[in-house]
Amino acid sequence: MPPRLCSLLRVSHTIARPAAEISPFLLPFLYTQQRSSSILGSLTNVPGAVRRRKRVGRGPSSGKGKTSGRGHKGQKQHGKVPLGFNGGQTKDEVVAGKRGDHNFASFAVDMIPLNLYKLQDWVDQGRLDPSKPITIKELCESRCVSNVKDGVKLLAKGSEQIKDPLNIIISRASAKAIATIEAAGGSVTTRYYTPFAIKRILQGRMDPIVSLQSKASEIQQASKKTFYSRLPDPTSRKDIEYYRDPAHRGYMSHLVPEGHGPSLFFKTPGTGKRAARKTSKSRVSAADNRMW
């Protein structure tokens, strides 16, 4: 197509204006091409934004032409070889399979660590309210922790930065973290969560604090809001013992009688029946039978 100057020139001729009458500084504009063209024709992606598909068997210049990246001869060239296949000999993983403690990882609880410096930072940023209880719901909502699986454990890194009294309800806490929070005038309660419970709590369909075995005073204080499902309590001995322990600030520690330990198996020395009998009868009788 010839350049489209003619029409513009024709327009300027029909006005029959001598060339001198047009200001000299406008002359370059008169002879430029003027078209209203859309930007749509010149839109492109950034080079390298799209990765070209590998096309095998399309000639030597494609780099994957002759054998299509499958090498020469045999089953591997023509089809599939089963995974772990050893040429008919017993598979390696059958002869020398994994043994031992490799499976224990799937039973371990996956606690997300939360350090004190981060907690204080979030409070300073105004993303956590120190006047209200900080639970797993608040922590997830403010993205202080994310991808919570089995729970969150409070750790003591940056403990010198804690200055606000915080009321924290969390899965687990280290001894130093508990001491730091309490020294600042706050409180820590550890309580049991399951992955299902965490999911429901984040949906707002389960109470994040109160369950059946919580302290009676806490149950009374709890908000009147009704929830779709109830927060579960631990059923395994290991968990029950953790949350019965006052040293962990467990939420079930009120169930432990005065002077008793948290264990469900070992009785506290001096609290059994035999010990009670011994203390009451034998001492008295011993006093009676004194010769001297």
């Binding site: 105004g126 956590l128 608040e138 909502e141």
Partner: peptide, 14 residues
Amino acid sequence: DHSSDLNMTVPSAV
């Protein structure tokens, strides 16, 4: 309607 990349807020529990 088309400002989703501007109206982002910092996630907060307050």
